[in-house]
Design a protein around this nucleic acid. Structure first.
Length: 299
DNA sequence: TTAGGGTTACAG
DNA sequence: CTGTAACCCTAA
């Protein structure tokens, strides 16, 4: 991966993602103003948010290739996207060769969704954990139960979420991505109000007093992708023609929302070798989910 | 204010 | 030297 100047922390990225999920992509000012994220993103401008979001999506979708700019230009000069009902091997889905955005979301979701790779799931779980912590916005951090509840609420919970969660949490603490304080987990980088970023001593292990209330529910209005909305939009999606679906999917790829954010992190964290299969799978899922969202919002 | 093109800094 | 991600500039 490349090298940064003022690199974005995982905390900031998670906040950005959460912000996009909540307010939508493009509402950078709104996200920045939102007290939920203003603390974390205080040092970032709306332009920074926009740029970061762009980088994330570009790298996630185009398989870390700087073709993005060129390819995008070429795409704009071409007529409506062609629909290829091809048997899309997973890799062909990602490499839309510069001029054709081949997509058939409806077919894809039936085919490739059931596939589950252990490693990619773990990456996503890591992401979900971060998102949960950010979104729950618990001052002292969130305990395992709260995180588990959050993930169960917003995603399909694996059969043994509890066990997985425990393992992942431990691992993320080990690699310094999060810190554990009094049974609660927080994002590791510096305090959420500090002017400086990761330079400040990461040991803000302030021994907070044990909170009296044992349960830490998602008492906030943070809602991610209501299932009812998704379900409702599925029917819409089914009635769309392949052409419409392809166009919508292409647009969704361009700006994207929650699903793309998911793809972003998953693809970024995946190894180069399996990144393609991973990205393809995620892309399929992302296109489908984004399609559902867009259907009600724009189309 | 935002989207997009372009530039610069930095890691491999 | 190449690729990537942050940064910058400008039009709409």
């Amino acid at each position: 991966m490349g090298a940064p100047k003022q690199k974005w922390t995982a905390e900031e990225e998670a906040a950005l993602k959460a912000g996009v999920v909540k307010h939508g992509a493009g509402k950078w000012r709104t996200i920045l103003t939102d007290p939920e994220f203003s603390a974390i993103l205080r040092m970032r401008s709306n332009v920074d948010l926009k740029d970061k979001w762009r980088n994330i999506n570009v790298t996630a979708i185009w398989g870390s290739r700087q073709k993005a700019k060129l390819a995008l230009k070429k795409n704009l000069l071409l007529p409506a996207p062609k629909i290829d009902n091809n048997h899309m091997a997973l890799s062909t889905a990602v490499r839309h060769d510069e001029n054709v955005l081949e997509t058939k979301p409806l077919a894809i979701c039936g085919l490739s969704l059931p596939s589950h790779n252990s490693k990619q799931q773990l990456s996503r779980l890591d992401d979900h954990i971060l998102e949960a912590i950010i979104s729950l916005k618990e001052p002292r951090g969130s305990d395992r139960n709260a995180i588990a509840s959050y993930i169960e609420e917003n995603y399909q919970s694996p059969t043994n979420l509890g066990k997985l969660l425990r393992t992942r949490l431990k691992h993320m603490v080990d690699i310094g991505k999060i810190i554990k304080v009094q049974q609660r987990y927080k994002i590791s980088p510096s305090s959420t109000g500090s002017e400086k970023r990761r330079y400040s001593s990461s040991t803000l292990l302030q021994e907070g007093r044990p909170r009296d209330s044992p349960e830490a529910e998602k008492s906030h209005d943070v809602n991610i992708l209501s299932k009812s909305q998704v379900d409702a939009d599925i029917s819409k999606a089914k009635s769309m023609t392949a052409q419409e679906a392809a166009v919508a999917a292409a647009k969704a790829v361009a700006e994207a929302e929650a699903a793309i954010a998911e793809a972003e992190l998953a693809a970024r964290e995946a190894e180069a070798a399996e990144a393609e299969a991973e990205a393809a799978h995620v892309f399929a899922k992302a296109a489908m989910k984004a399609l559902k969202c867009k259907t009600s919002l724009i189309w």
